[in-house]
C-alpha cells in the first residue's frame, strides 16, 4: 500500500485556484521530490497535505486513512511533519525549546537522543541552544526549522526548500543528512528549487506546472531529460 496518495486535489487561496487537480503517490521508504517554477503549486501541495490550506475537493490518503479534512495537529499526530517555507521558528523561544516543540506530541523517551542527533547534524544549533531563535540569522533559523521537523520523528517528512538561505557548504551537509534520514527509514516528500540537489537525493520526482503535474519519472531519468535540464537545472 502506498504511504501517501493524493487524488485530484484542488486547493484555493480565496478564490484563486492554486492547485488544479494534483495526483501523486509516495511509497513507504521513498524520497520523492516536487520541482517546478514559482507559483507551480509545490508549496501549496505540501500545505494541503499538512492541513494548513486544506484542499477544497479531492482526497488525500495517508496509510489508507483520509486526511484531507483533518486539522493540522491531528495530521501531525498521524506521523506527518513539515518544515515550512519561510522557517516560522518561534522567535522568542530558545533553540532548545523550539526543538522540544517539534516533539510536542511524542510520548516516547527517545526525545533526548533525537535532539542530540539534530545537534550532531547542525553543531551551530548546539552552540546556540540557549539563544532565542528570533535573534539567529536566517540560515540558522532554517536549520532550526528542519531540526524541529525531525524532532517529531515523523513517518513522512515534508521539507519545503530546506536549502533556502543556507551557505553552500551547509547545503551539501543538509542533503547528505536528508539522504541519511531517508536511509534510516523516514519517507520524505521534498520541495526544492535547487533541483540539482533534489534530483540527486530523491528516487522519483514530479514536475509541477501551474497547479498540475506536467511530468513524473524516476529522478535519474528526469535529470537526463533535456526540457527539465533547460528549465530547472540551469544547464
Amino acid at each position: 500500500m502506498s504511504m501517501l496518495v493524493l487524488d485530484d486535489i484542488k486547493t484555493y487561496y480565496g478564490n484563486i485556484q492554486a492547485l488544479k487537480g494534483i495526483s501523486l503517490t509516495v511509497e513507504p521508504g521513498e524520497c520523492v521530490t516536487l520541482i517546478g517554477s514559482n507559483g507551480a503549486g509545490k508549496s501549496t501541495t505540501l500545505r494541503s497535505i499538512s492541513g494548513l490550506t486544506p484542499p477544497r475537493t479531492g482526497s488525500i490518503l495517508f496509510e489508507g486513512q483520509e486526511i484531507a479534512r483533518m486539522a493540522p495537529q491531528d495530521i501531525v499526530s498521524l506521523g506527518i511533519s513539515q518544515s515550512p517555507e519561510g522557517r516560522r521558528c518561534f522567535p522568542r523561544m530558545t533553540v532548545a525549546e523550539n526543538l522540544d516543540m517539534g516533539a510536542y506530541l511524542r510520548r516516547d523517551t527517545d526525545v533526548e537522543q533525537d535532539r542530540d542527533r539534530v545537534y550532531e547534524l547542525f553543531p551551530r544549533l548546539e552552540e546556540r541552544s540557549k539563544q532565542k531563535a528570533g535573534t539567529m540569522s536566517g540560515g540558522e533559523q532554517q536549520m532550526l526549522a528542519i531540526g524541529r521537523a525531525l524532532m517529531a520523528k515523523p513517518k513522512l517528512l515534508l521539507l519545503d526548500e530546506p536549502s533556502m538561505g543556507i551557505a553552500p557548504i551547509l547545503v551539501e551537509r543538509i542533503y547528505e543528512t536528508i539522504a541519511e534520514i531517508n536511509k534510516q527509514g523516514t519517507t520524505i516528500l521534498l520541495v526544492e528549487q535547487n533541483a540539482n540537489f533534489a534530483l540527486g537525493v530523491s528516487h522519483r520526482a514530479y514536475v509541477l506546472e501551474t497547479g498540475k503535474v506536467a511530468l513524473s519519472d524516476e529522478s535519474a531519468k528526469l535529470r537526463e531529460n533535456p526540457d527539465v535540464q533547460k528549465a530547472y537545472l540551469g544547464a
Partner: peptide, 13 residues
C-alpha cells in the same frame, strides 16, 4: 538580501 532564495535556476538567471 538573498533575492534568489526560493527561485529555481532559470528564475535565478
Amino acid at each position: 538580501d538573498e533575492p534568489t532564495a526560493g527561485m529555481n535556476p532559470q528564475e535565478s538567471d
